[in-house]
């Protein structure tokens, strides 16, 4: 797992989540649970998050990738992004 302070992907994902879901200054960490824990995360919000990630990181998310395992925690979503970035 990347170091929390130098993990730019993780930080960007946290910022996008805060902005897209309107979480304000609520602190997020890699361990923060998403699906089933954040009431803000309705189906429209899920799509907004995916679209924001696509625009920010420049990749396309396939329909098959819209899966609960990627949205379990902030960390699993960051891992999902990392796996789609050029090495």
């Amino acid at each position: 797992m990347p170091h929390p302070e130098t993990d730019t992907v993780g930080i960007t994902v946290q910022q996008l989540l805060c902005l897209t879901l309107g979480l304000g200054t609520r602190p997020l960490t890699a361990q923060t649970p998403l699906l089933g824990s954040l009431p803000e995360l309705d189906s429209m919000a899920v799509i907004s998050v995916i679209t924001a990630l696509e625009n920010q990181f420049g990749f396309e998310v396939a329909d098959d990738d819209i899966h609960a395992r990627h949205f379990a925690t902030v960390g699993s979503l960051s891992d999902f992004v990392r796996a789609r970035l050029p090495a």
Partner: peptide, 15 residues
């Protein structure tokens, strides 16, 4: 395409 994704997201959320 993005709108149709709502079906996938809803399915994912409803478990």
């Amino acid at each position: 395409d993005q709108f149709l994704r709502l079906r996938l997201a809803a399915r994912m959320l409803s478990n």
